[in-house]
Design a protein around this nucleic acid. Structure first.
Ligand SMILES: [Zn+2]
Ligand SMILES: [Zn+2]
Ligand SMILES: [Zn+2]
Ligand SMILES: [Zn+2]
Length: 737
DNA sequence: CTGGGGAAGGGGCCC
DNA sequence: TGGGCCCCTTCCCCA
């Protein structure tokens, strides 16, 4: 993980664009007809939340959800000024500079006005390397924030510049990158400049730099309406060393690292940056003054807080936008000061129902093919099937663009409306920036619907917005790093594992030897099901599955049992069936030695034992008949509890021995004798350790004796079976002797 | 209720 | 690269 982070930190901006897995778009603000709800707040994606201070000002942006690495937010929205038309006295704290590929200033984006900017203005910068989880990049002529690492639920989004970005701004490399580069002894020549305190080198006759640094120099509480700190942008414009005012302030606060404290405030234009915001007549043009946060209606920070008219209005707007999204209830689950863009985070928020290995993101709503616009803001008609409109305005052909999300995840869908556009970029059938997969033709020989997916090179919206400034991604400035395959950039994290190239899923970290396998795998996360049965409309992730499925309609059963001539639709099912003839029962209950032909039967059987085990480990699924067994298990042998001692394999073995003892007559005797609860676990531990030392491990009979509830009581106490450790061992088919 | 058998879906590996 | 194949899992039904 660490290595990956370091690698990502050295990515160029174009790499983020090309390699990102998910795109999280803003809430479509056009849909929100709440005039008093500023865009900066209304645009917040639903997997994020605002944190407010006591005066209801937004002070941070938090994650409502696990957000995987490689997720893109943005673009930053703000008012656009060119060098020529930038208001003379503009408040530049929220300015962002957009450069041409040649390094010339192209324009400014001013995110100062919450009505004309988006939520990204509220993301705080961080000088704290380990805390940084976002990196700001300019792609095309837009600013995006990419996740550098997974962001856990409730964590604050903290951003710093990509190193290329920092280079352009001639701004100190801060955050993780600086640390990593320092650590590596790597230092890009151009990025080298100002890591040391002191006056900044003159800027190329450019205008003030909107930077993250300024924001660092001040408490958020001071932010809005604070007039006493001014940034000498004109000095910067003239290439003069920046005013040290902000540095002093930072030093006084004593919270920032040395370098940061001494950074010039001029190099810091960030949303929440300190400054003249809301200072009427001083620096803001009248038009902006009207939009000053000071004049904004105060939004209730907690959805359940005082029911202001604005709050009601917001509720109305949001609930009309999300019919299934509950209105803010007066008694929510959440404590203040969270402001959620929509509804509550219900206790049953689907993610929490998923096992840790499950899709960290709820299934992406309709995936966007190039040239297509996701249906934004439209309530779902059918939670199973999303039909999507095509960007060219033609109505979708029903057989063509239908994406079905994974089974059993309908509940999740209802919370992720299409507005939460998480667009998978990596599936071959979908758009991928900088990659041209060419038209694809899928046809199902099994009779499924064939369809064509036209995939074109995604055009950066920024490029479209600025045709005159078209940035050719192939220009050196945006070249992907060397070491990729061929000339086409590979959008997947590559890893070398003992000499072999591995393609790693950046959602679940599973790695694949072949890119095509990873692409197929990614459908697990994206929910993409490109193969549809034309008879029942069911969709599948793989053609082979559709083909197999098609047999249910034809009734064809290609696989015959040569013993009884029964026929089966699949080889697996035949194989299971053959066990009936061979007598093979690979799944054995470790406790009662009962054996089964199918795993599911063993599992059901084990539930019977579970019922006899009231002592449940709070950290892992283990249950015990006797309290001392649980006590011992929890004394450092639970693999999921903190403080587990030993390798997983060792723990597994030890736990197997606890299991065995727990199930033995000796354990029953021990409990029947009223064993001292304080001493029994220690006794048991010693017993097991002695066993381990002497290595006296015999083989338990693996016969298929009767499996009666009391059968295990006749089992030999110790020695234990020579199971090779893994707890899951008993679930694996035993090799036929 | 429990054991047992089959149908079908889904993921991953390999050629 | 993707189709074929294998394995695993879940669901359902029945005795
Ligand atoms: Zn994955
Ligand atoms: Zn069908
Ligand atoms: Zn047979
Ligand atoms: Zn058993």
């Amino acid at each position: 993980m660490r290595g990956e982070l370091r690698a990502m930190l050295q990515w160029r901006e174009a790499d983020f664009q090309e390699r990102c897995t998910y795109i999280v778009k803003d809430q479509p603000c056009e849909m929100l007809a709440c005039p008093n709800f500023p865009r900066a707040q209304a645009s917040l994606p639903r997997n994020l939340a605002f944190q407010c201070n006591s005066s209801h000002k937004v002070v941070a942006v938090l994650s409502r959800e696990y957000i995987p690495s490689g997720t893109r937010f943005g673009p930053l929205v703000g008012e656009v000024y060119t060098k020529e038309n930038v208001p003379k006295n503009a408040d530049r704290k929220h300015f962002w500079r957009i450069y041409t590929p040649g390094g010339e200033l192209h324009h400014f984006v001013d995110a100062r006005d919450p009505r004309r900017s988006n939520w990204m203005r509220y993301v705080n910068p961080t000088p704290d390397a380990p805390a940084q989880n976002l990196v700001a990049c300019q792609n095309g002529l837009e600013i995006y924030f990419y996740t550098l690492k997974p962001i856990v639920t409730g964590a604050e989004l903290l951003v710093w510049y990509n190193h290329e970005f920092a280079e352009r701004l001639q701004c100190p490399l801060l955050g993780v990158l600086a640390e990593e580069l320092e650590h590596d002894g790597i230092r890009k020549s151009t990025a080298e400049a100002p890591t040391t305190p002191g006056p900044q080198p003159p800027q190329r006759g450019s205008v003030a730099n909107p930077n993250l640094t300024a924001k660092l120099t001040k408490n958020k509480e001071e932010e809005e309406g604070d007039e006493d700190e001014s940034v000498d942008v004109e000095a910067l414009d003239r290439g003069l060393p920046p005013s040290p005012a902000g540095c002093r302030r930072a030093a006084l606060r004593g919270q920032l690292p040395q370098e940061v404290k001494q950074w010039p405030t001029g190099l810091s234009p960030f949303p929440n940056a300190p400054g003249k915001e809301g200072a009427p007549g001083k620096s803001s043009p009248p038009r902006q003054r009207a939009a000053s946060p000071r004049n904004q209606p105060v939004l209730n920070c907690c959805p359940y807080g005082p029911t202001t008219s604005l709050c009601k209005e917001l509720q109305r707007c949001l609930s009309s936008l999300y019919p299934s999204c509950p209105l803010y209830s007066p008694t929510g689950h959440l404590s203040q000061p969270y402001l959620y863009a929509c509804g509550t985070i219900p206790a049953h928020y689907p993610r929490f129902a998923l096992p840790p290995h499950a899709v960290p993101f709820l299934p992406a709503p309709p995936l966007s093919r190039v040239g297509e616009v996701p249906l934004l803001g439209l309530p779902l008609q059918d939670p199973q099937v999303y039909a999507r409109a095509r960007g060219d305005g033609t109505s979708p052909s029903p057989g063509l663009y239908t994406t079905v999300l994974p089974h059993g995840k309908q509940e999740a869908h209802e919370l992720w409306k299409p507005q939460d556009v998480l667009i998978s970029l990596q599936s071959g059938t979908f758009s991928f920036p900088g990659l041209d997969y060419g038209p694809k033709q899928y046809s199902s020989p099994a009779g499924g619907t064939s369809y064509t997916s036209e995939v074109q090179q995604q055009k950066s919206t920024s490029l479209l917005a600025h045709p005159l400034e078209a940035i050719n991604l192939s220009t050196p400035k945006f070249c992907p790093p060397a070491g990729r395959l061929g000339t086409t950039p590979v959008p997947y994290p590559l890893k070398k594992q003992n000499g072999k190239i591995k393609y790693e899923c950046n959602i679940c970290a599973k790695s694949f030897g072949q890119l095509s396998n990873l692409k197929v795998h990614l459908r697990v996360h994206s929910g993409e099901r490109p193969f549809q049965c034309h008879i029942c409309k069911k969709c599948f992730t793989q053609l082979a599955h559709l083909q197999k499925h098609h047999l249910v309609h034809t009734g064809e059963k290609p696989h015959e049992c040569l013993v009884c001539h029964k026929r089966f639709s699949s080889t697996s099912n035949l194989k299971t069936h053959l066990r009936l003839h061979s007598g093979e029962r690979p799944y054995q209950c470790r406790l009662c030695r009962c054996r089964f032909t199918q795993y599911v039967h063993l599992k059901l059987h084990k539930r019977l034992h579970e019922r006899q085990r009231p002592h449940r480990c709070p950290s892992c699924p283990k249950t015990y008949i006797h309290p001392f067994s649980l006590a011992l298990h929890r004394r450092g042998y639970c693999p999921l509890a903190p403080g587990a001692a030993g390798a997983p394999a060792q723990l597994g073995h030890f736990n197997a021995m606890i299991d065995h003892f727990d199930f033995s007559l000796d354990a029953e005797r021990l409990e029947g004798e009223g064993a001292d609860p304080a001493r029994a676990p220690g006794l048991l531990e010693n017993l097991i350790l002695r066993e381990l030392e002497t290595g006296r491990r015999g083989q338990l009979p693996r016969d298929k004796g009767p499996c009666s509830p009391g059968a295990h009581k006749q089992l030999p106490l110790l020695p234990l079976p020579h199971y090779s450790v893994s707890v899951k061992q008993e679930d694996f088919p035993l090799q036929p002797a």
